[in-house]
Nucleic acid binder design. Structure first.
Lengths: 148, 148
DNA sequence: CCACAAATGCAACAGTGTTGCATTTGTGGC
DNA sequence: GCCACAAATGCAACACTGTTGCATTTGTGG
């Protein structure tokens, strides 16, 4: 084993997934792993622009995210405002089965510590993918701001 | 009681909600009540164009839907492709607390007959809005089509 | 029937996401 | 280390969904 045995740097993950290791992909993957909640394009562009290096092209960012989703390294979801949000999939099961709180005000997603209920029975022909117990409301920050 | 006691025609609902009764709103409300699942703008335009009368302006449709949501006669949600879908809210509680199945393939929404679990405890400051138990996967139609 | 506010239609715009194509860059083979 | 090729990138332009401004029409209460 070499020094990469500190298990899965972004570059390792990309190599393991069988796609080229490029600076853009490494940066995006780092950003996703560093984020505590799914990021949309805007947030990601801002974050990548702020880290010193030259900002990625908007289209390139879309394509990088698509390639990460295609090879299973990222997950794509939609927030309450209809905007795509991406999260790292490198830590399997972390988001697979648990409860999310979606703020209808700011669109943010928060993870709640609680066991999700078992999935219900489905009609014939329906195939189960993921189960998400979605709780909507106003998050602490927006609640406070509203109260002003 | 008068002849309107056949309970809530679209016009009655609009009057009761305190907004003007216009042909467009009546048609949209009828379409919403007739739909078996939430409709997006495209579907609604198609449906309204097909019913003989002149098609509504795209912007007018948006505004009508917004006004219906504002006065509580319709509900707005986002599908898996990030598109807004609207449903009639005239039958309260019908959608308030039950389980939805979202097809990740065609974006359709199906209602399952099952009791949703009780909402979990929220962190301090968070205010509960709605609870939705969201099950994702592939619907019967798309499953069959994939199997070809 | 009148007047006024609300609703509509049209045009133009904004944000998010996509496509085409020429150029650059990572990777495997020599 | 160098080359060639496919893959990735950057740029420009486009498509779709949703929004805003403003002049005109229409529903509603008097």
């Amino acid at each position: 084993m070499d020094s990469a045995s500190i298990s899965s740097t972004p570059a390792d993950l990309l190599r393991a997934a069988g796609i080229k290791v490029t600076p853009g992909r490494v940066r995006v993957l780092q950003a996703l792993h560093g984020a505590r909640q799914p990021l949309c394009h805007g947030e990601m562009e801002a974050q990548l622009g702020a880290d010193g290096a030259a900002a990625l092209d908007r289209v390139t960012l879309y394509r990088i995210l698509d390639s990460l989703v295609a090879c299973g390294l990222a997950l794509k979801a939609v927030d309450t405002r209809g905007v795509f949000r991406f999260s790292a999939a490198g830590t399997p099961r972390q988001h697979a089965n648990h409860i999310h709180f979606r703020c209808t005000d700011c669109g943010g997603v928060f993870c709640l510590k609680a066991e999700p209920p078992p999935p219900p029975k489905l009609p014939r022909g329906f195939r189960l993918g993921e189960v998400e117990f979605d709780v909507r409301g106003t998050c602490a920050g927006c609640s406070a701001r509203e109260r002003e």
